[in-house]
């Protein structure tokens, strides 16, 4: 995505708010989508330029939130909830399943740059544990046995 069109998109979103700074989170989200799932330094320059703020400010905000990635990530994002309710019914085993299948640890990306695996705090699906977010879409009642299938799907899908 070229910086110009990103700029226009951001300013479009900003128009919804009484103060354009309110568009910061949506703007960073757009920039992240435009930069392959993470926010490189130029992304902050672009967002800052579009909202009339400094890149330092934009990064300061982005680094506060877990859904913004300040380092490169894989094409797919696998996030396993390991908070209490999921952990009680075996989230750790699900996580280990993904680690085995993908051959990476939590917080790492597969060599081929396809998948980033990480744990995440309560996703708000505790009653349907274990919750795994695949590219920000929830899978409920995930058990270790489901993991190979999910990974295959991802690999096939890409």
């Amino acid at each position: 995505m070229s910086a110009r069109s990103l700029r226009d998109e951001i300013q479009e979103v900003a128009a919804q708010y009484p103060q354009s700074r309110s568009a910061m989170l949506p703007a960073l989200r757009l920039a992240q989508e435009g930069h392959g799932g993470w926010l490189p330094p130029e992304a902050f320059r672009e967002v800052g330029e579009a909202l009339g703020l400094t890149p330092a400010y934009c990064k300061s905000v982005a680094s506060f939130y877990d859904m913004f990635h300040l380092k490169p990530v894989g094409r797919h994002l696998v996030e396993v909830c390991t908070n209490v309710s999921c952990a009680l019914v075996g989230a750790q085993q699900v996580l280990e399943g993904f680690q085995r299948e993908l051959g990476v640890g939590a917080g790492e990306t597969t060599e081929d740059g396809e998948v980033t695996l990480r744990t995440i705090e309560c996703l708000g699906g505790c009653g349907w544990a274990t919750i795994v977010a695949i590219d920000e879409h929830y899978r409920t009642h995930v058990s270790p046995d489901d993991v190979p299938g999910i990974v295959q799907e991802l690999r096939r899908g890409s």
């Binding site: 680094s63 877990d66 990635h69 380092k71 390991t82 009680l88 075996g90 750790q92 744990t119 705090e121």
Partner: peptide
């Protein structure tokens, strides 16, 4: 215990 050695995000805080 099911909570044994659960990997929490804080232990791999990306930022």
């Amino acid at each position: 215990s099911p909570l044994d050695h659960v990997m929490a995000p804080v232990a791999q805080h990306t930022h």
